[in-house]
């Protein structure tokens, strides 16, 4: 092989190597661009999410206050004409108002509703129609503009007296 040819081959190899390296760098740069795009989009979401996140401790404090006042009002309403009851109920309503202003609205849950694990957190079972809400123990809240449940309503689920057991007793009686 002549020296000139040798040089040419070297040059060619060098160029090929360089082209490969440039292609790789290019690929990585394109990749970075994509990531920046995504980070940017995520950052936007995060800002919105952060606002919600910042409200979480405030809301949990308000839930606690709301629960406490509501429970006390319910307990006192057992005695007729307790003048404190309307006052406590008013305070609970005010707290619910403040919560609504943070975006947390009360879930409409009432006895007789069909049990829905997305809205209800069962706290126990009690006499009532099978598979339906027998009593609401604590209210639930949802984030209105995202249609997301923030806190499920605490409910007692109705459970008819065990029919299978009844059947067994019946047949035993027949024998």
């Amino acid at each position: 092989m002549l020296p000139e040819q040798d040089q040419e081959v070297d040059l060619e190899n060098g160029l090929k190597h360089l082209a490969e390296q440039v292609a790789r760098e290019h690929e990585r740069a394109a990749h970075r661009e994509q990531i920046i795009d995504r980070l940017h989009a995520e950052n936007q979401d995060l800002r919105r999410g952060l606002l919600q996140e910042a409200l979480t401790p405030v809301r949990s404090g308000l839930y606690r206050l709301y629960d406490t006042v509501t429970r006390e009002a319910t307990r006192r309403s057992a005695h007729d004409g307790d003048p404190v009851v309307p006052l406590l109920e008013a305070i609970a309503e005010e707290v619910a108002e403040v919560l609504a202003r943070t975006g947390a609205e009360r879930l409409e849950v009432a006895p007789g509703d069909e049990y829905d694990p997305a809205l209800h957190r069962p706290v126990g079972t009690g006499p009532g129609e099978d598979g339906r809400v027998a009593a609401v123990v604590s209210d639930g809240f949802r984030l209105a503009d995202q249609d997301r449940v923030l806190r499920k309503a605490g409910v007692v689920i109705g459970k008819a007296p065990d029919s299978a057991q009844d059947g067994a007793q019946d047949s035993e009686g027949n024998i």
Binding site: Y115, P117, R121, P122, V123, G124, T125, K152, I157, K159
Partner: peptide, 13 residues
């Protein structure tokens, strides 16, 4: 079959 928090809550019923 339900798995997770809802399953945990369902233990009551």
């Amino acid at each position: 079959v339900v798995v997770g928090q809802t399953a945990k809550d369902s233990a009551v019923i």
